[in-house]
Design a protein around this nucleic acid. Structure first.
Length: 221
DNA sequence: GACCAGGCACATC
DNA sequence: GATGTGCATGGT
């Protein structure tokens, strides 16, 4: 079914013009991206940074160290990110799986077909759609769009989807309307987070929002 | 002190 | 299939 609605392309253009390239994910190594993606579940990024800093400080941010550290010591490091018992279990699940299934190396997943890699990630307990897609896009460089709470709010507040649109439906909108390349999906998601975090926090700022020409009557946050 | 933050799994109906 | 609940910290 052909898509003539260029709203999402227009949003992208306006956001990029305003904010410029975001250079995402905020983390250099693939380990840091995966760990960050799990730790940031329902949690502010600033809290995740404290946890990542702890792991870096103690030189634990590599697959071997994460495999060998015990749960108590790991939980201690990631405590500032919240839900630390739960997240210790989820990190453990992922790391154990990566070593068992892929010998502690993400390369096979980078080479694998997107659908296959995604199914594998979703099979790990604690990895849901958003975490899987963040890993796929930012760590494995697969062309897939990440839907997060900000994106859902953006689409709903602009009337582009109804109140109970699913993750898959929202993702399909982006996939149907944008070029399927890693750079675009990467940049777009990063720009939405930037908009939410820094610009649309207060109503006064929202009036100057790059998307203000569209009829959104409520800020993103 | 309330409210929020880049989810997810699991229980229950 | 839909809806509700637990998980926890640090910033505003």
């Amino acid at each position: 079914m052909p898509q003539h609605d260029s709203t999402l392309q227009d949003f992208y253009d306006r956001l990029f013009e305003r904010f410029g390239p975001q250079h995402w994910w905020p983390g250099e190594s693939d380990v840091e991206i995966v760990v960050g993606a799990i730790l940031t579940q329902n949690t502010s990024w600033t809290n995740v940074e404290y946890a990542i800093d702890n792991l870096k400080r103690d030189q634990l941010l590599d697959w071997r160290s994460l495999r060998d550290i015990d749960d108590t010591a790991l939980a201690e490091r990631i405590r500032p990110a919240g839900y630390y018992n739960l997240k210790t279990r989820r990190l453990r699940n992922f790391v154990n799986w990566l070593w068992t299934r892929h010998d502690g190396d993400l390369a096979p997943l980078r080479r694998a077909p997107l659908a296959d890699a995604r199914a594998q990630l979703l099979g790990v307990n604690g990895i849901g759609p958003e975490t899987a897609d963040s890993i796929l896009l930012y760590a494995l460089e697969h062309p897939i769009f990440v839907i997060d709470a900000y994106t859902g709010r953006l689409l709903r507040r602009h009337g582009l989807v109804n109140e109970k649109a699913t993750y898959g439906e929202m993702q399909a909108m982006f996939h149907d309307r944008l070029p399927h390349d890693v750079a675009t999906f990467n940049e777009y998601h990063a720009l939405i987070v930037r908009l939410a975090r820094e610009h649309c926090r207060v109503r006064a700022e929202c009036a100057k929002c790059p998307l203000a020409h569209h009829a959104h009557n409520e800020h993103l946050r």
